[in-house]
Design a protein around this nucleic acid. Structure first.
Length: 760
DNA sequence: GTTTTGACTTAGGATTTTTTGC
DNA sequence: GCAAAAAATCCTAAGTCAAAAC
């Protein structure tokens, strides 16, 4: 393994990226509303222009303009159009690409099945076991499932290492024993096995798309049925009490429960709610209730508030009883048996009915999310398993036995018509393997990222508009860790974008800004309607290209009009096996953590200071990935409290120092054992208080810096846990300081396999 | 070839539980 | 023992991406 894990700063300056984001990204909350409004306006425009926008005439039109301009700049080989939908052209282009990519293609083909490719893998490390000689205990008939040469296989190969042969042998031995007992043994072991955790990462993976061979579970837990309100809790319409039918009442309670939430003041929310509510009313109710503004839910609202208050005030015994009941349900429904192992299910409870809460400006907010019944549910399990029983008097929609998927239960939700699933916990083998594989892909990107960067920089000069756009988009995805940006159906969801779906209105070009040349100002709403705001100096060629892409376009036109995620990912797939746009996010996040940890950690710091360094490294990644959070409501107050504590501690320290001084003086005079002891004690006290003070100060810094930044998302989804584990081992920081219990369960594989010199 | 669907990961906010400091 | 704060967990929406359907 090369010792170089620097992040090629000549091309990608993560340092500046970090700083720019730090200073700008979070300052602009005020502008948010304004921007939101702007989006709405644009949307209107867009609706108006929709046909124009998507039809080819428009493309031809802008095409022509592009072409005219391009003619000046580029020598067009054949003068043909660049139109992306032009079939002939496309074929030709593909040919060209093929020709051009011949070298890469070959490399890939070779690599696919031969050691050449393996070479391009990061050198395998000590922590890898050879899966070769290890067999899944459940694979008693492996011949039938002979692994094909597949992508995963490549990774497996790279992970082989003979170093832990001894251990392997042990495992193998164990497995032979296990085989005799098979299922029964597996179950028994699973039930009382808490100490001995199963190390799935020491076993061979399925490589043929099979996800499991045996799956048994109890089905989902349904939402509790609706309990009508007591008589005394009334709903008023136009000032008069009115009894509602149970169906209408239930929906009304959904609204009543949310009364002090901002949602209920939003027009769209109210409109959608009212429309769906009326669908649940009897014709009599429908006739009466015609205006939401005349509805008074406050009594209902108060009732629910009182109820939740009462729940808090419950006696210890009552609380204990509820806890036990929950535990019982968890034990019964919260686990499944998958391939001899009892594994935790993530979301075994069906989502209860309620009002849809979209994020941002969601056009469907307030709609009724209907109750899911057994008849809506598809069960997935093994044929030879004990199938879950539907509640008495009901039926499942379907029971299927598809072992090419990982879900246990699915249903179709009524807001977007999408499918929801019940799947396993992140600590499960099936999730863990995938997670591990994700980081291995990112590590493979590390070994070829230089080549890729060189290529996209070349492509900035391409004759073909499509290729230029692709190359500039890729540059953003790499440098700024933007998301891919799939197209989304308009009017169905909030108006948010990613890289490929950026519109002209989302960027502003500044030839010169704040003393820097070629600055691009980004301002758009990304996933979950989280605002991305950033000013980035870019290379001249990128800047000029952006100018070209923006020429003769309306603000609501696509910036990359000849690009989408499919085109981009197809290209990436050709550059590296398994490469997609999101791999860049994983790669850049992980490499940044590793780099920052190296930079920020100093040997002589104590543990709290080291943890601060870790959090700062983590924070650099969160900023890069734009993981924001609303500042906690109590932030200012808790910050003040902390400051008070710090001041008090300082005073205490000064006092202790004074006492030490006088004790020293005493000792100088008396020179006896007693005074010496007193002096030592005071010394210790000063030391202790200094440490406490330091801890508080570190805490304050950490908290202040973390005000609007969420560390959890990157920690859980983007940072190769082996980097953190290695760091902990190297500096003697207990892993518990970095990962809580759940996180340790999720990352058990990494904690077990990474040693202190793991390199991402 | 394009659009739609399905399966899965990633995401922030809400809620619950635990810890802290008195 | 209590209230407040912090941390952990739950919840489910909103993305990505590839395969299936058209």
């Amino acid at each position: 393994m090369s010792g170089d894990y620097s992040h090629n700063d000549s091309q990608i300056d993560s340092g500046s990226r970090y700083n720019v984001l730090l200073t700008d990204s979070h300052k602009h909350k005020e502008k948010y509303k304004e921007k939101e409004h702007k989006h709405k306006e644009h949307k209107k425009d867009k609706d108006r222009d929709k046909s124009k926008y998507s039809n080819s005439e428009h493309k031809d039109y802008s095409e022509k303009k592009h072409k005219d301009k391009e003619k000046e700049r580029l020598k067009h080989k054949d003068g043909s159009s660049d139109k992306p939908k032009d079939k002939y052209k496309d074929k030709e282009k593909r040919k060209e690409e093929k020709l051009y990519d011949g070298r890469l293609k070959k490399e890939k083909e070779n690599g696919f099945a031969s050691p050449l490719h393996v070479k391009s893998e990061p050198e395998s490390d000590d922590f890898y076991l050879s899966p070769k000689s290890l067999k899944r205990e459940r694979d008693d008939d492996d011949s039938e499932y002979k692994p094909k040469k597949m992508k995963v296989e490549n990774e497996d190969k790279s992970e082989k290492k003979a170093k832990k042969r001894k251990q392997e042998d042990e495992v193998r031995e164990k497995k032979t024993k296990d085989k005799k007992g098979e299922v029964a043994d597996g179950k028994k072991k699973a039930k009382k096995e808490p100490e001995e955790k199963w190390k799935w990462w020491e076993e061979e993976r399925y490589t043929d798309g099979v996800k499991w061979k045996f799956l048994e579970h109890k089905g989902p837990v349904f939402a509790p049925p609706y309990e009508p309100l007591p008589e005394h809790v009334r709903f008023y319409y136009d000032g008069k009490p009115m009894r509602l039918s149970p169906e209408a009442e239930e929906v009304a309670t959904f609204f009543a429960k949310m009364l002090d939430h901002e949602y209920t003041t939003k027009d769209v929310f109210r409109k959608n709610f009212f429309k769906d509510w009326r669908k649940e009313m009897t014709s009599e109710e429908k006739g009466k209730i015609t205006d939401l503004n005349k509805c008074n839910f406050t009594e209902m609202h108060e009732y629910f508030k009182a109820q939740s208050e009462a729940r808090k005030q419950m006696s210890k015994e009552e609380k204990q009883k509820i806890k036990e009941e929950n535990e019982r349900i968890l034990q019964e429904y919260g686990f499944c048996i998958m391939d001899n192992h009892r594994e935790r299910i993530a979301n075994f409870r069906i989502e209860p009915p309620g009002l849809f809460r979209g994020r941002g400006d969601h056009p469907k907010m307030g709609m009724l999310k209907r109750r899911i019944r057994p008849e809506d549910i598809i069960i997935n399990c093994s044929k030879d398993s004990k199938q879950p029983k539907p509640p008495p008097g009901t039926k499942w929609k379907e029971v299927r036995h598809d072992n090419k998927v990982t879900w246990l239960v699915s249903w179709t939700e009524n807001i977007q018509g999408s499918i929801k699933y019940i799947m396993l916990n992140p600590s499960s083998r099936i999730k863990g393997e995938k997670d591990w594989q994700k980081y291995e892909t990112a590590r493979r990107l590390k070994s070829c990222v230089d080549r890729l960067r060189a290529q996209y920089r070349e492509d900035w000069k391409s004759k073909e508009m499509k290729i230029r756009q692709r190359a500039v988009a890729l540059y953003f995805i790499d440098k700024l860790a933007l998301r891919a940006g799939n197209e989304k159906e308009e009017g169905e969801t909030a108006d948010t974008v990613g890289c490929c779906s950026l519109r002209v209105e989302h960027i502003t070009l500044h030839p010169e800004k704040d003393g820097q040349e070629f600055v691009v100002e980004f301002d758009f709403l990304g996933k979950d309607s989280i605002r991305y705001y950033n000013k980035v100096p870019v290379e001249k060629r990128v800047f000029k290209n952006l100018q070209l892409f923006m020429e003769n376009k309306q603000p609501e036109d696509d910036l990359f009009d000849r690009l989408n995620t499919t085109i981009l990912n197809k290209h990436l797939q050709e550059l590296m096996d398994g490469l997609t746009a999101k791999v860049f996010r994983t790669y850049n996040a992980s490499i940044t953590l590793q780099q920052q940890l190296k930079e920020l950690t100093t040997a002589d710091e104590n543990i709290p200071a080291k943890i601060l360094s870790y959090n700062r490294a983590n924070r650099a990644v969160a900023i890069l990935c734009n993981h924001q959070r609303a500042p906690p409501k109590t932030f200012e107050k808790s910050m003040q409290n902390l400051q008070t504590k710090i001041d008090a501690k300082k005073e205490q320290l000064a006092d202790a120092k004074r006492q030490l001084k006088s004790a020293k003086a005493d000792h100088r005079v008396c020179k006896d054992e007693k005074s010496k002891k007193a002096m030592e004690a005071k010394k210790k006290a000063v030391q202790r208080i200094e440490e406490q003070l330091m801890k508080l100060e570190v805490q304050a810094t950490d908290r202040e810096e973390n005000k609007q930044i969420a560390l959890g998302t990157s920690k859980l989804n983007y940072l190769d846990p082996r980097i953190s584990v290695a760091w902990c081992k190297k500096w003697g920081v207990p892993i518990e300081k970095i990962y809580n219990k759940t996180q340790r369960e999720k990352f058990a594989w990494a904690i077990d396999m990474a040693d202190e010199d793991f390199e991402f």
